[in-house]
Nucleic acid binder design. Structure first.
Length: 579
DNA sequence: GCCGTTTTCGGCCCGACTGTTTTCAGTCG
C-alpha cells in the first residue's frame, strides 16, 4: 500500500470523526498524521515493518496501530464501523457552502437527510427552519449552494493560468484606487497550488469603507456571500469566489502572511509565536503578558525573523517540513524562472504547433534562453500531424540552416516527442540516435492495465536514446486522471537509467505534481521543466512549471534545463554512452 | 489523538462573518 493511500484512509477517518461530532482535536490529529505521511520520503510500509511509525512527528501509538491494521488487513475497523453509522451521501452534503459537519449530522439525525437531493427537497419544503438554531436563511443558503454544486461549469476549480489572469486583473484594478497603498494576491494562488478554489486578495488602506464600496462595485460580481467591514466575499459571474480582506498599512505584512496560508503553516507559526509569549494573528503579534505589547513587523521577512525563521517562500508554506528546515537553517535555495536556460519540449508548425521554428527561437531568445529543443510529434500521432521520416529529415535540415545563420541569439536543438507504442517506440533506434533531445510519451491506450502501461514506460526509459519522459502520468486537471502508472517504479527507473522526468508546465497538466516531483528529487532523479508549448504565448507557461518545482523544494542544480548549453550537451552525450 | 527544558494531564491557532441568538455556535480560511 502506498503512502498516499494510507494518508487518504486517515483523511477519510478524520472526516468520519468530524461527522459524528467527535472532539475536533482528534480528527485534526488524524489530518496532521495524513499530511506527514503524504510528505514522507520513505515508504510507510517499510517504516511499519521496522516498527518505526511513532518516530514520525504526529503519529502516536493509536494512529500507529491503525496504520498497522490498514497495512495488514487493508482496512481500519474503526472506519468500517463509522461508515455503517454515517451514510456516504453525507460527504456530498458537506460540500454545500455553509454546511459543515455539525449541521450535516444534525440534518441526518433529525431529518434523515443522507444525500444532496434529500437536502434540496427538505430546504424547498421548509423543513430545515424547524431545527434548533436554524431559520429560513439556512434554507436559501443551502439551495443557492446546491445550485452552484450542480452546475458543472461553476463548481470547477480554476486552472493556475486562469486564476493568475483574474488575480492580476483584480489586483491591478484595486491598485488604481487612490486610497489603496498596497495590494497583493494571497491564498492558494500565491502559493501556486495546482488548481485554485477561491481568489484571495489583501489591500492596505486608511479608508476601508471607500475601498470596500469600490470592490463591491466591480461589474463582474454577482451575489455577496460575506459583506463585513473588513472582509468581503463576492461570487464572480463565472462561478468562483473572490475574497477581499482590508487592513491598515501597519497590519499589511502580517495580514499578507496570514491570508497566504496555508492554514496548517499558519498554525505552526502561531505555535512558535506562543512559545515566545506572543499571540500571532492577521493584525500582528500581541504579547500574552500583561504588557499587551503589540508588534507589527514591517515585512513578512521581519515577521519570520521575529519567530526565529528565515523568509519562507509562499510555495513552501504547506507544513511539509519547511518550519523544521527553517529552524535548522536548512531551507533549500529554490529554482527561479531566471535560472531556466532553455525549454526542451516545444511544438512547431511542423506538427500541431502554431509557430515556425524561427519564431519560436526568437521568442525563446527574448526570454533569455540559451537553447530550445523542437520536439514535434512522431509519425503515429496522425491527428497531430506527426512527422514521417522524410519530413523529420527536412525539419532537421531547416534547423541546421537556422543555427548556421547565427543571428538567432540562441541554439535550436533537434528533438522529437516520440510516441511510446505497444512494445516499441514510434521510430527505430538509428533514427533516435541522430536526434539531440528525445522526449518519450504515452498518447494512447490510456485504459490499459497498470502492468501493460508500465511495460511500455519501462521500455522507453531503458532505451538509451530516450532522454526525457514527458508528462509521466498523463493526467489532465479537472478532466481526467492519468493512466495507471506506478510512480514509485517510474522514479526508480529514472534514477537507474538517468532518464529525466518532466514537469510539464501546461496549466491543465502540471505533471509531475509537486509531491511526486519532490519524492523524485529526494531519491536523486533528474527533473526537467518544459512547457510543451504549441503557441508562442505558451512559452510563458514556464512560470507554472517552475512553481511546481519550487513546491517540490527543487534547487537549480537539480533541474536539467538550468544547465548551460555546454553542460546540457555533455549530459546528453554521457547518457548515450552509459547505455 | 498527540504531546511535553513551564506539563504524563490538560491543553491543543486565531479571527471574521452570519444567523439566530439576547451571548454564541457554526462555518470558513
Amino acid at each position: 500500500m502506498k503512502n498516499y493511500e494510507v494518508a487518504w484512509a486517515l483523511q477519510e477517518l478524520a472526516d468520519l470523526l468530524d461527522l459524528t461530532g467527535e472532539n475536533s482535536f482528534k480528527s485534526r490529529a488524524y489530518r496532521v498524521a495524513a499530511r506527514r505521511i503524504q510528505a514522507l520520503p520513505k515508504d510507510i510500509s517499510d517504516l511499519y515493518r521496522e516498527g518505526r511509525l511513532t518516530e514520525i512527528d504526529g503519529i502516536g501509538t493509536a494512529i500507529a496501530q491503525k496504520i498497522g491494521e490498514l497495512l495488514t488487513t487493508g482496512e481500519i475497523s474503526l472506519a468500517q464501523r463509522l461508515r455503517e453509522q454515517i451514510p456516504a451521501g453525507l460527504f456530498d452534503v458537506l460540500t454545500v457552502p455553509g454546511v459543515g459537519p455539525k449541521r450535516a449530522y444534525q440534518f441526518y439525525r433529525e431529518l434523515g437527510i443522507d444525500s444532496l437531493s434529500k437536502l434540496k427537497e427538505a430546504a424547498k419544503e421548509r423543513k430545515l427552519r424547524r431545527l434548533k438554531g436554524m431559520g429560513s436563511k439556512i434554507e436559501s443558503t443551502v439551495l443557492a449552494g446546491i445550485e452552484r454544486i450542480e452546475n458543472p461549469e461553476k463548481k470547477r476549480r480554476l486552472l493556475l493560468n486562469t486564476a493568475d489572469y483574474y488575480g492580476c486583473l483584480f489586483k491591478d484594478r484595486l491598485a488604481q484606487h487612490p486610497q489603496v497603498t498596497e495590494v497583493a494576491v494571497a491564498g492558494s494562488l500565491r502559493r501556486m497550488v495546482e488548481t485554485i478554489g477561491d481568489l484571495d486578495l489583501v489591500v492596505a488602506t486608511e479608508s476601508p469603507q471607500e475601498v470596500a464600496e469600490y470592490f463591491k462595485s466591480f461589474p463582474e460580481f454577482g451575489e455577496l456571500v460575506a459583506n463585513g467591514p473588513t472582509k468581503i466575499s463576492a461570487i464572480h459571474k463565472s462561478g468562483f469566489q473572490v475574497d477581499l480582506r482590508i487592513v491598515t498599512p501597519q497590519e499589511y505584512p502580517s495580514a499578507l502572511l496570514h491570508f497566504t496560508g496555508s492554514a496548517d503553516h499558519n498554525i505552526r507559526l502561531r505555535q512558535l509565536a506562543k512559545g515566545k509569549g506572543f499571540r500571532l494573528s492577521e493584525y500582528g503579534l500581541e504579547s500574552t503578558t500583561d504588557s499587551k505589547e503589540v508588534v507589527t513587523p514591517a515585512s513578512e521577512a521581519a515577521l519570520y525573523a521575529f519567530l526565529g525563521l528565515p523568509y519562507i517562500p509562499p510555495e513552501l508554506r504547506e507544513d511539509r517540513g519547511e518550519i523544521e528546515a527553517g529552524l535548522a537553517g536548512e531551507l533549500p535555495k529554490l529554482v527561479e524562472l531566471a535560472d531556466i536556460r532553455g525549454d526542451l519540449h516545444i511544438h512547431s508548425c511542423w506538427s500541431d504547433g502554431g509557430a515556425t521554428v524561427e519564431e519560436l527561437a526568437r521568442a525563446a531568445a527574448q526570454r533569455g534562453y540559451q537553447y530550445i529543443a523542437i520536439c514535434d510529434h512522431s509519425r503515429s500521432l496522425k491527428i497531430a500531424n506527426g512527422l514521417e521520416l522524410e519530413r523529420l529529415k527536412r525539419q532537421h535540415a531547416d534547423i541546421a540552416e537556422l543555427n548556421a545563420r547565427g543571428d538567432l541569439g540562441i541554439t535550436v536543438l533537434t528533438g522529437i516527442e516520440v510516441d511510446i507504442l505497444d512494445e516499441r517506440l514510434d521510430y527505430e533506434d538509428d533514427v533516435l540516435a541522430e536526434i539531440d533531445v528525445v522526449v518519450a510519451s504515452v498518447h494512447s491506450g490510456f485504459k490499459q492495465p497498470l502492468e501493460r502501461i508500465m511495460a511500455r514506460i519501462e521500455l522507453a526509459m531503458r532505451n538509451p536514446h530516450v532522454d526525457i519522459l514527458a508528462h509521466p502520468t498523463g493526467r489532465l486537471l479537472q478532466r481526467r486522471s492519468g493512466y495507471a502508472v506506478d510512480m514509485n517504479r517510474v522514479i526508480d527507473l529514472a534514477v537507474e537509467t538517468g532518464t529525466a522526468l518532466e514537469i510539464n508546465s501546461f496549466p491543465d497538466r502540471l505533471d509531475l505534481d509537486d509531491l511526486t516531483a519532490r519524492k523524485a528529487l529526494q531519491r536523486g532523479a533528474t527533473i526537467v521543466i518544459n512547457t510543451d508549448s504549441h503557441h508562442l504565448e505558451q512559452l510563458a507557461y514556464m512560470t507554472y512549471g517552475v512553481a511546481m518545482a519550487r513546491r517540490a523544494w527543487a534547487g537549480p542544480g537539480q533541474i536539467l534545463n538550468c544547465k548551460d548549453l555546454t553542460s546540457l550537451r555533455k549530459w546528453l552525450r554521457d547518457r548515450g554512452s552509459t547505455h
